[in-house]
Design a protein around this nucleic acid. Structure first.
Lengths: 112, 112
DNA sequence: CTGTATCCTAGCGGATACTG
DNA sequence: CAGTATCCGCTAGGATACAG
């Protein structure tokens, strides 16, 4: 009898649901790419800017801030350097994203 | 040595990555709610419109179309009735979304 | 080097009236 | 009942110049 997903259906409930925040965050364009990079090593700002081809500095900044607000990454600012690192919480999210990626690979509905 | 996530870093690669499509789809506002409802039983259009409080008919239509394009749901149109049903592929996605929801519940960074 | 400020476009999401 | 048409605001995303 219990619903498959414990999910609300009214709008206010929707906005208060814990899942929606993270879901809409990972749905943003560069979130997964950033997490993937930071999973291997810390990065500086320009380092990320150069490594990720196609992102603008503005969006890069904002996406990093969002990730920081959700405690997925941490930022340590020193003169001439900002170091972005994946947090433990961020690390626990990786397997879920990997699983989603694998699912997508299996079910990739290629539309021409 | 292999990267944690097999993810590209250029923009063209980004757009061709199978994961991005599904990620950006589930990141949309009503996707998860729809999947959750259809997981339990088929629904008609107005039935969904009435059950989900806060969605507009336009967005409801578009979200359903997106889900249909990704083969997560199927639509059977008969006179006076459109029946939306979760596909097998859609059903395999549920555990992943549930896992994400649980992750969010555990790490819900409530920012006031 | 690490951002912010400014300006722009496109698409999401919404409200509502109308059509088959 | 099941949508579409039309309108609108907001925000994601981008380009680029400037600032600390």
């Amino acid at each position: 009898m219990s619903p498959v997903l414990p999910l609300p259906v009214t709008e206010s409930d929707h906005d208060n649901c814990a899942a929606t925040g993270i879901l809409r965050l990972v749905g943003q364009k560069w979130t997964v790419v950033l997490l993937a990079l930071l999973a291997e090593q810390p990065y500086g700002f320009n380092e990320l800017d150069r490594t990720i081809h196609g992102v603008s500095r503005r969006i890069l900044t904002r996406t990093l801030r969002h990730l920081e607000q959700e405690n997925l990454i941490s930022r340590v600012r020193t003169p001439q350097r900002a170091e972005y690192t994946l947090t433990d919480a961020g690390r626990t999210l990786l397997p879920l994203i990997i699983a989603l990626g694998e699912w997508a690979a299996d079910h990739h509905t290629r539309r021409p």
